[in-house]
Amino acid sequence: MSAPLLITFDKVWKSYGEGEARVHALAGVDLAIRRSEFVAIMGPSGSGKSTAMNIIGCLDTPTAGTYRFMGVDAGRLDRNRRALLRNIYVGFVFQGYNLLPRTTAAENVELPLIYRGVSARERRELAMQALAQVGLVGREHHTPAELSGGQQQRVAIARAIVTKPMLLVADEPTGNLDTARTHEIMELLTRLNAELGLTIVMVTHEADVVGYAERTVRFLDGRVASDTAKAEAA
């Protein structure tokens, strides 16, 4: 694999609490992800998957060890610098969609562009493009309450890709969806990965979702237990 490294964990620890009550959500994680990879992260509940995702997406910083994003030591950046990194390079998709309520699909998708200072006209255009990419033409004026779960997740994906990011961080994106909707969303993510070269790191519990990824990383007790390519996993 010759694509440049996008993400490197070097003995990353993330600990909460003090003394007796101290919990290590991550206990020395080593991990490297290259550009345009599609990685699934699995593991039992509480194994540190979400914690790792937050660090990957520059939302959080390690307690110890180094996390590098595009070669930058992101763990040492202040919160506003990390906000800028997120705004430019990262898109987030959450299990609970996390759309702004009472706000139309188009406005939700435009949101990251507002913080980039993009003009209103250009925002509208880019939002329409993103909504078209996720197959939601004609729904741009609907609010989340007027959309189904699958459609809401598509809006969230549109919002994540509207800035043309390098990395998509998805924590259980299909956790709230039925099987048919799950496969639609996974096909969409696969297409974005293939067509745009978008790097995708996705947490999932579902075995049939894992099949869409090229690579599976399993967490156990805050450590990487296994790291397998698709062919081996199948």
Partner: peptide, 16 residues
């Protein structure tokens, strides 16, 4: 609070 979280996650600066 959740709305603020969403805005911060997608890259809002504190000042925003």
């Amino acid at each position: 609070t959740r709305e603020i979280g969403i805005r911060l996650a997608i890259g809002a600066h504190e000042n925003h």
